[in-house]
């Protein structure tokens, strides 16, 4: 009788152990599935966020370009053409012709530069670093700033999408400098090292209190978020009356 009970016990235990193992297997698979789904969801979210940032960046660059074009037409080409018209009414025919030639030449060059900047793909077509140089030229054109540009990088590379985002970030930083920094000198350095590549932007302006960064608005947060979304990091150093230094560190972007 006792032997029978032991057999029953053994059979039931064996079945329970097997069923338990099967359930354990199912739970393991289900947990693995949940973890994988979370990862996929997170990847999808990051991808969507990146696409949204890219779209926003494109729109902002377009807006910036249109503002720039409108300003250029009004302040530069418009003035040049008005001056040319005045020259037409001048009495000295020889000097009139020469001056007219100079003015129209300048207007044509300005229009050509403008038409280049209206091309929405000009960052892609010109390349990232030449686009940044053009941007600095635009800033320095008014003569209010001394611009220094150093490309110490041997192999600075960003994908088209990352280039667009960083271009917009730099545009925003330069915009902040021209609006708030009261600087006379702006320098920009491109460099790379084993761990990655970086862009250093310095100005000798009034600087700001780092402890009051919160009050300096959405601009800086937006810049930080955009750099982070492409796997980069931004470091801002500033002191009142001692200027500002911004270092944008980026991962090596060249595909293997």
């Amino acid at each position: 009788m006792r032997a029978k009970e032991e057999v029953i016990f053994t059979i039931i235990v064996v079945i329970l152990v097997l069923v338990f193992l099967a359930i354990l297997f199912l739970v393991f698979i289900a947990r693995n599935n949940t973890r994988k789904n979370k990862l996929l969801y997170e990847n999808e979210r990051i991808k969507k966020e990146f696409e949204k940032t890219l779209l926003d960046t494109r729109l902002e660059i377009q807006e910036y370009t249109l503002n720039y074009v409108s300003r250029e037409i009004h302040d530069n080409i418009g003035q040049t053409l008005s001056l040319a018209r005045l020259q037409l009414n001048s009495s000295d025919e020889f000097s009139q012709q020469e001056a007219l030639d100079d003015l129209l030449g300048k207007a044509i060059t300005d229009l050509r530069t403008l038409s280049h900047s209206l091309n929405t793909d000009y960052i892609k077509e010109q390349g990232f670093i030449p686009s940044i140089e053009s941007l600095l030229n635009q800033v320095g054109k008014a003569g209010m700033y001394k611009i220094d540009f150093y490309n110490e990088s041997s192999d600075f590379y960003l994908t088209d999408e990352h280039g667009l985002i960083i271009f917009r970030v730099i545009q925003e930083i330069l915009n902040n400098i021209t609006k708030h920094a009261k600087a006379s000198r702006i320098s920009m350095t491109f460099n790379d090292e084993n761990s990655g590549q970086f862009i250093l932007i310095k100005d000798d302006g009034c600087g700001f209190d780092m402890n009051n960064l919160k009050s300096s608005g959405i601009g800086l947060k937006n810049i930080k978020d955009r750099v982070q979304i492409i796997g980069g990091h931004i470091d801002i150093q500033s002191e009142i009356n001692k200027g500002t230094q911004i270092k944008i560190s980026l991962p090596n972007g060249r595909p293997n």
Binding site: I15, L18, V19
Partner: peptide, 13 residues
């Protein structure tokens, strides 16, 4: 899952 649990138990029985 149903087949796995059933068959494991049924195999022993």
């Amino acid at each position: 899952a149903g087949l796995l649990i059933f068959s494991l138990g049924a195999l022993v029985v």
